[in-house]
């Protein structure tokens, strides 16, 4: 797993690569935890490099979404690989996250 977080004009761009599973979800959470306190931040989560996510990882997505909303911000996820999208579909998470095909669409969507 490899995460890069960049501050952009729109807010934050989080690029997630590799696998998020029970062995490293803690590291994942630690590296994005500082975003929990960003007031009104728009966070763009690039999942194009994400190969696998376990339920532990989904929990962190969920936490991030909740925290960001409390701070008046929003979380936009884009460019999911099909197998990741499937996990989101199966678990019904597709309905509670804002998911976009790519960065451009995510930026321009309300």
């Amino acid at each position: 797993m490899k995460i890069t977080i960049d501050r952009t004009d729109e807010g934050f761009l989080v690029v997630l690569n590799g696998r998020v599973d029970t062995t490293n979800y803690n590291a994942f959470e630690n590296s994005i935890a500082h975003l929990y306190n960003e007031k009104g931040a728009a966070i763009y989560l690039d999942c194009s490099g994400l190969d696998y996510i376990s339920s532990s990882g989904l929990r962190i997505f969920l936490t991030l979404q909740k925290k960001v909303k409390v701070q008046g911000g929003m979380l936009k996820i884009f460019a999911m690989q099909p197998q990741i999208k499937e996990i989101f579909d199966i678990s019904g998470f597709s309905s509670i996250f804002s998911i976009y095909p790519d960065y451009e669409t995510a930026k321009h969507a309300g």
Partner: peptide
């Protein structure tokens, strides 16, 4: 078919 409902414990 896939559900539209989210897991319990979230909202």
């Amino acid at each position: 078919s896939n559900t539209k409902a989210i897991p319990v414990g979230i909202f």
